[in-house]
Amino acid sequence: MDESDAAAVARACAGDTDAFRVLVDRYSRKVFRLAYRMTRNEHDAEDVVQESFLRAYRRLKQFESRSSFGTWIFRIAVNAALDLTRKLGRYEQAEQQMPEPEGGAHSLFQLPAPDPTPDRLLLSGELKHKVESVLASLSPQVRTAFVLRHYEGMSIEEIGSILGLKGSATKNSIYRAVQKLRKELEPLVVAQSGEPPPARGELGSTGSKGRSHERCEESETSQ
């Protein structure tokens, strides 16, 4: 049976480095994934993995079993990744370089590509580039909240605990990330699903309660 994290932490605190290795084996891949999504660079992500486990080892005695080791190491990794990106100025640079498409969110439809099918876009990595650009344009807090929720499947409560935010602020960060993604990706994605892109403003900048009601009311009256 696998040793629990708490037991491994207790043994590692007592000086057993093999026990710490159990934790490294268990979490290094997850920490790498998180770090990559935050730094967008393989080497930086590997450095974040190293730095995170080093910090964790040095502070292992401060770890209290009230939270899980996974949440704790993620908190350390988030801080390490933010420290690194701040130091390298990568995101600041990326934010400045974030292209604001002319003509708004629908400009990709207007690209004079010979065959701009969604598959081609996907294959060419354009969609990936677009998603990365959007993520890079978000503030570190918003981006981190979204990465933890969307890619790592962490709950809003856990994310709040990692980022030191209240539930409402965490939710708000996630909404902002999703709104930005919708604004930038919806035209591509709707085309991919074979449906026409929605008329501009029809969905509101995603999130307008009033507008969503209007749409439903319209449809209801037409029934």
């Binding site: 993520l135 999703v178 994605v189 699903s193």
Partner: peptide
């Protein structure tokens, strides 16, 4: 609206961490 939201969030999955 929900389908569109799902589609956008599914598209965000293209950003995968490189395999180790």
């Amino acid at each position: 609206r929900y389908r569109e939201l799902q589609a956008v969030l599914a598209a965000a999955e293209v950003v995968e961490a490189p395999a180790r």
